[in-house]
Design a protein around this nucleic acid. Structure first.
Lengths: 227, 227
DNA sequence: AAATGTAATTATGAATTCATAATTCAGTCA
DNA sequence: TGACTGAATTATGAATTCATAATTACATTT
């Protein structure tokens, strides 16, 4: 921890990058929609310059696509993109699991145990929003515990992509139960500081999530065909 | 392959992102230096707006750091950062190796064989620049053969970071010979389409590169102490 | 009525301008 | 002589302006 705490976040465009990314990830801006530059400027109370700077960053992160002289559109989540993303994030989570077991401290451990309890509770109550939040907290904490900024930064972007995709399908009860079971095994490995094991489970967890996603998409496509 | 080929690259800021990134990676802009906005605008013949947009993107990629009201500086390559980068890129290369064996086509295979020959030739001739180029071509081609855009994009950024670091130390003859040997094993695995094996060797290759780098840095530090 | 060509409008990329924060440098005092 | 103060200068972030590309609306023709 450095002695000099980093200063507040002053620049407009940084703030905007986060806000806009959230709008995309939280599905407030729908895939394929053009980004309404003018409206956003007004609602944020800023001029076009910082907003456009932010859009450039978002484009490099893959959340919007820029078309020459035709502005920005919200990137569509293609199946191809999902198929490409999951294997990559699975490997990053595997690495994170290994490193987390080496580097996690007592405070981090306590926090994760606490969030795990909250997550199971949300599952039993059928409370999806709370589950999603606790789940996200746990994964974030594990990545953070790995103590690798590069890993964390790249994971953050990929995780946001995956999080966007949750609006494409519903979490099935089966998959939900399976995910909870996998999280149980993650906690076991973490308590034993079994990095190899935690890495394996986290990778598997992500690949299973992937499989469930693909299946859900296909089921939905079939349903649509029937109607 | 889509019927409609994507149009040229018209926008100033995209061009600038690439050009500036190159200046950083090729060490024309030295770590820690402040980015001379004015000079760059003049030499590129553009105004500040697109240049600053490009700097925002470069900052999100980690090649420059922005300080509030104090402009951009070229990011310094810290040892910590390198220690964080190598394990991540090693995993990505492992994954790329596995996927490349599944997806590579004849043209890709031919190109890689050709570049491998050129690389060995450059090694025997002691021609470092040609070696670096061929080496980079091979790794890029393998990643590309994996046929995963997400993987490719994230690898590209990390590879650029690592490439920057080559200015910190020299490639020792020992490490060079070892690298050539590892590439030989990569080619063997690739020819057999042994994805598992290729992934392992590529991961190892990167981790060995990492070890050599750290060692070189330490040796250099010791030399400096003696003088 | 449909289609094509053209003018008007709008939106976009980039240049310029503006307000302010940071830096530099001269002058003052110890 | 050297450290501090404060004005002058410079650099930066953001707003505004401007030129042009794209879209829309409309008219003309068949």
């Amino acid at each position: 921890m450095p002695l000099t705490e980093t200063i507040k976040r002053p620049t407009l465009h940084e703030e905007l990058v986060d806000r806009l990314r959230n709008l995309v990830v939280e599905d407030a801006l729908k895939p394929g929609e053009k980004v309404p530059e003018k409206e956003l400027c007004e609602s944020f109370g800023v001029s076009r310059t910082p907003l456009r700077e932010a859009l450039k960053v978002l484009a490099s992160e893959g959340f919007v696509v820029l078309q020459a002289n035709r502005g920005a559109r919200v990137a569509v989540v293609t199946r191809q993109e999902l198929e490409n993303t999951f294997p990559v994030i699975a490997r990053l989570e595997q690495l994170a699991g290994e490193l987390a077991c080496e580097h996690i401290d007592a405070a981090g451990m306590t926090w994760i145990e606490e969030r795990h309890v909250a997550m199971v509770k949300a599952f039993k109550a059928g409370d999806r929003p709370s589950y999603f939040q606790a789940n996200q907290d746990i994964h974030q904490a594990l990545i953070h515990a790995a103590n690798n900024d590069i890993l964390e930064a790249h994971h953050k972007l990929l995780a946001a992509r995956v999080r966007r995709a949750r609006f494409m399908v519903n979490l099935s009860d089966d998959r939900w139960a399976q995910a909870i079971e996998e999280h149980g095994r993650m906690m076991e490995a973490l308590r034993l500081r079994d990095g190899e094991g935690l890495g394996q489970v986290m990778k598997l967890h992500m690949l299973n999530k992937y499989a469930a996603h693909i299946k859900a998409i296909e089921d939905q496509a079939n349903e649509d065909l029937e109607n």
